[in-house]
Design a protein around this nucleic acid. Structure first.
Length: 651
RNA sequence: GCGCCUGUAGCUCAGUUGGAUAGAGCGUCUGGCUACGAACCAGAAGGCCGGGAGUUCGAAUCUCUCCAGGCGCGCCA
């Protein structure tokens, strides 16, 4: 609500400033530092001061005297050196809240926003780093949807890459297994296939270390996979599909779902690269190098994507042996996302989520079932860790060089820093670390060596810990119910932990800290929502009903109640949810919503402590307090839903 | 060598397009359960915002410089 009111006021003030002073920039409105300064502060006087060579305070006085007061505003006053502080009309504001949100203007013509995330190599179990990616992407998609945007979630699967090839080589060469053997392992319910591959991949990598000639295995597997024939190709298919299912199951534990799985195999078989290659050559975005170290390659000049010059910085797109690099394929894929490639995949259903949502996968031929329209995004967010920013720059440069500057601008590298481990957590997990690492704030671990924390292990551990807490508080409740609650708390803790940091902060994952359910955590916020529900449930247990607020409270009553500074500040804070979401979208920073959720919970816990709602004797106040409780509940639930966090039945 | 990111309380981190007296959690210390169940609340201590210079009415925020740390710069993905 606050967001809409602020927009209305800004429009009104901007119109005045434009007419009176001819300024184009709009009204400089911000939230004052302290509540006593009102709800909004206009600082335009400072900016105008220079231009008109007058004291800021004098200009503020002019504005205060001449500007028509916007209808949401009750009063305005000059403060400090030239601030113009606005106070909202509390009764009007409260009445608007009672009336509920205005219907959103959602239309089918809304442009589509694509969020691509997760993108885990399908050759081993997911680890905590992947969880940060998935939770960031999933939450951002939820934020966009909550704000009325049309969103499509993609999870790209590199099922023909080196990492899959290495595991196939491991099965074939180290384990001497046939595709049938691998299929049996996958079907065996006692085998955790993704864990098995995790270890096998580490063994293969170690073997390469000691026996460099064994790298030929990788080439052998890659060729087989690319040709799409033979036992190894078959095995690669089995492994990748099975691991994708493992990943989907892991992610679903956190409530993460996708719309479509674009796969590298189809990009290959449907010759996406050939189409992109033609475009790149036609538009002269790349050129054939005849001499120097890149002789025989098609390269993109460094000037296209960085400040550096010279052939050293040029990026090879097609190798001298004619094969395309990863970046080249990524340019083709990125073109498809914007609907610029002139080609599309075929699709078939992969699975249906319990929620009812259908997940599709790309296919190289029609399956006979009508699929939704995928791709054709107006804006694309690629959730990829910050170490790949150089490559993302090259991809965007490719779009620009092809004559698509707007798309390059809207091709957003949604980068984030890695998840490292705290030294003490390494020790706890039995990961060997050097003396030097022990002194550092965090230690990066290697998936190649099989070190690190598997996502499912972490989730299991969190559930176990949550279960202990639940059991100690609710011995009487049915076991199945307690299991459910513990699961929701565990997921709440994990998702919040991944979201509370800004994207470019390195998370030093500390088991103890992540397992904590106190302070700035998901469970703290969940607890506030549960407490709000408890009050309302208690009311019904006492044989009462929730009043019809819009009938029992009018603008005058709201005005009377909101005259109390305490209540006004609470209502104001609760009404800023939409503001937090918009800020998070504009800055691409989901942590804003996480932090807002925490503030909201803090506000509620304080309210809960100070005002025994059900004991209130004054009738109007009691109805108001019940309304406020219900309002808190709604916003807490909605904000948690955006974060992908459930509200447990009890805590 | 070049490029990007980071440096804020003992620790981990916030800090809106530059705005009024720099915030939170953890940890430490002191209080508060009579069930709207304390996974909570109240209070205290704790800061030359890495150093320096500049821009201006105003800088944690912008510019330059130095210091410290991280990451990237493959015909790997």
């Amino acid at each position: 609500m606050f967001h809409q009111v602020q927009k209305r006021i800004a429009a009104s003030v901007s119109a005045y400033l434009q007419a009176r002073y001819g300024v184009e920039g709009g009204a400089a409105l911000e939230s004052p530092k302290e509540p006593r300064f009102g709800e909004l502060s206009l600082v335009s006087a400072f900016q105008l001061a220079r231009q008109f060579r007058k004291a800021p305070r004098q200009i503020a006085a002019e504005i205060a005297a001449e500007m028509p007061v916007p209808e949401d505003v009750a009063s305005l006053e000059i403060a400090g050196g030239g601030f113009l502080n606005l106070r909202l009309d509390r009764g009007r504001y409260g009445a608007a809240l009672l009336a509920g949100p205005a219907a959103g203007a959602a239309g089918a013509d809304r442009e589509k926003i694509i969020v691509e995330h997760t993108n885990i190599n399908p050759n081993k179990a997911a680890h905590i780093g992947h969880l940060r990616n998935a939770v960031l992407g999933d939450t951002f998609a939820r934020m966009l949807a909550a704000a009325g945007r049309r969103v499509e979630t993609q999870n790209y699967i590199d099922n023909t890459g080196v990492q899959v090839a290495d595991v196939v080589a491991g099965f074939h060469r180290l384990e001497r297994k046939t595709p049938a053997d691998v299929a049996r392992l996958i079907a065996d319910p006692t085998v955790r296939f993704d864990y098995l591959c995790w270890d096998l991949y580490a063994r293969v990598s170690a073997h390469y270390q000691g026996n460099p000639e064994a790298l030929a295995w990788r080439q052998e597997a890659l060729h087989a996979i690319e040709a799409g024939q033979g036992e190894m190709a078959e095995m690669a298919h089995l492994v990748a599909d099975a691991i994708v299912n493992c990943h989907l199951r892991t992610m679903l534990r956190l409530g993460v779902e996708y719309d479509v799985l674009p796969r590298e195999s189809e990009i290959l078989h449907l010759h996406f690269w050939a189409a992109a290659f033609e475009l790149l050559k036609q538009r002269q975005a790349i050129y054939f190098e005849r001499e120097g170290k890149n002789a025989g390659c098609w390269v993109m000049p460094a000037s296209a994507f960085s400040a550096a010059e010279g052939e050293d910085a040029d990026k090879v797109i097609v190798r001298s042996n004619g094969t395309v690099t990863y970046v080249g394929k990524d340019i083709a894929y990125q073109l498809w996302k914007f609907g610029l490639l002139g080609k599309d995949f075929h699709y078939r259903p992969w699975m249906r989520y319990p929620s009812g949502r259908e997940l599709w996968v790309t296919a190289d031929q029609p399956c006979g079932q009508a699929a939704p329209s995928f791709g054709h995004g107006a804006r694309v967010y690629n959730v990829i860790d910050s170490r790949q920013s150089y490559l993302q720059d090259v991809v965007a440069a490719g779009l620009r060089a092809l004559g698509y500057p707007e798309q390059a601008e809207r091709s957003i590298h949604f980068s984030y820093e890695i998840v490292a481990l705290s030294p003490r957590t390494c020790v706890e997990l039995g990961i060997p670390i050097s003396e030097e690492d022990r002194q550092r704030p965090h230690v990066e671990v290697s998936g190649r060596k099989g070190l690190g924390v598997k996502a499912d292990d972490l989730i299991d551990k969190l559930i176990e810990k949550a279960r202990e807490e639940v059991d100690s508080r609710h011995r009487e409740a049915p076991g199945e119910e307690r299991r459910q609650v513990a699961g929701e708390i565990a997921v709440g803790a994990l998702r919040y932990f991944m979201l509370k940091y800004t994207r470019n902060a390195v998370i030093a994952f500390d088991l103890q800290e992540a397992l904590s359910f106190e302070g700035e955590t998901g469970p703290y916020v969940q607890y506030a929502a549960v407490r709000a529900r408890n009050i309302l449930r208690k009311l019904e247990e006492r044989g009462e009903r929730l009043p019809d607020f819009s009938r029992e409270l009018d603008a005058a009553a709201m005005g009377r109640q909101l005259a109390a500074e305490d209540f006004w500040q609470i209502v104001l804070a609760v009404s800023k949810a939409g503001d937090a979401v918009e800020r998070a979208i504009a800055s691409g920073e989901p942590s804003h919503v996480a932090r807002y959720a925490f503030q909201l919970a803090q506000g509620f816990n304080k309210f809960y402590h100070e005002y025994p709602v059900l004991q209130e004797a004054d009738r109007e106040r009691r109805v108001f307090l019940l309304w406020l409780t219900d309002y808190f509940r709604r916003e807490l639930e909605q904000t948690l839903a955006i974060l992908g966090i459930a509200v447990p039945a009890y805590m």
